[in-house]
Design a protein around this nucleic acid. Structure first.
Lengths: 200, 200
DNA sequence: GCGGATATAAGTCACCTGTATTATGTCACG
DNA sequence: CGTGACATAATACAGGTGACTTATATCCGC
């Protein structure tokens, strides 16, 4: 065999290049040629690792989701073990918002993905399931926190779950510089303070 | 002059066609030819009303913003005069979320616009200013409600403003059917209840 | 009525796209 | 020592794109 190469590694490098293109020029400009240029490989080489544009985009999306998940996991290691429910929710939220370069890259990929999923029945199902799983995770965290007495039992589980998820609405405000990262964090902390306070 | 025609009306009809294309096929597919087909006019005719694709998209965006603003104004007429601050905030939020066809069309245009603005310096400024104005409006509403005693004076104005705006984060959850409109409304009402309750 | 601004249609152009094809280089293994 | 799977590169192609030009029809105001 020839210059044996780590396929996975190559594909991830290309995915990173794709992220940069999407971040700097937008999803529609993420063409085969542009990504190849950004990744500093030939068009033919890119096609060797991704047989179609769709395959490339799909991989880059799954990779982004994995990376976000990894960042959350990593963010939890710095906390008390087991971590307090409030801190877990805080890490999940801060890693989903574009508060630092890595998170911003995956956040933009995710935004483009959701927008694309709205009019593509196949993608729609995938995105829908993914988002639903995310919601289920948050819901489970809150349910357990209620069971353990960290959150008042007279709260409505579904409503509190949805309110937590709605905090991702800071994304466009942060991206366009309307609010500062500290303001988003202050609002998140305020909301979590109320959620984990005795009063309803 | 020939078959004198209402330019404004024509452009709005084309903008509506553009909305439909964006809603059904996405922003990148909103090409001159596709919009002309959807609007049932010839390509030459479309170019007669919009000299470039950018001009068409820009007009459609401004029109979407105007329409949203109009819907809010119209939504306020059914309320007590002067309307209670809580109701005003509720109308603003419900008209920004994709809870009915008109709002969904403008919501999707707005999403595509913001995504585009992230990597286009010129659009970025326009979008940024628009969003900031929206935030200022909400902030003013809350400040007045605090001055009038509807909202406890020990609340933090900036934080409460940002938390209200974050409720637009329901958009992707609604669009992908992860939560139902009633759930979003319940969460909004819950948040407003807390904001307008005596306790901090 | 008729000149001329307006409206609509049709065709053309250079460019970019995703994909397919082909050619050439590389090197582990029988 | 090749042979064959893998890697890289270069090119071709059909289709769609925005913008432009040209041609024709329409009908108000003089």
């Amino acid at each position: 065999m020839p210059k044996q190469v780590d396929h996975r590694e190559r594909r991830e490098a290309i995915a990173h290049a794709l992220w940069r293109v999407v971040e700097q020029q937008g999803w529609p400009r993420a063409t085969m040629r542009e990504v190849a240029r950004e990744a500093e490989v030939s068009l033919g080489q890119l096609q060797h690792y991704f047989s179609s544009r769709t395959a490339m985009l799909t991989f880059a999306m799954e990779f982004a989701a994995d990376q976000t998940s990894d960042r959350v996991t990593r963010g939890l290691t710095g906390l008390d073990q087991p971590p307090r429910p409030r801190d877990v929710l805080r890490v999940v939220l801060t890693e989903m918002l574009p508060l630092h370069p890595d998170a911003r890259a995956t956040s933009r990929m995710n935004a483009a993905y959701v927008l694309e999923a709205l009019h593509d029945p196949e993608l729609r199902d995938v995105a829908s399931v993914g988002l639903r799983q995310g919601r289920d995770t948050v819901e489970r965290l809150i349910r357990e926190a209620m069971a353990d007495g960290h959150i008042s039992a007279d709260r409505n589980l579904a409503i509190e779950t949805d309110l937590i998820l709605s905090l991702t609405g800071f994304t466009p405000l942060l991206e366009l510089g309307v609010i500062k990262p500290e303001a988003a964090l202050a609002a998140i902390d305020q909301h979590l303070d109320r959620l984990f306070s005795p009063a309803s």
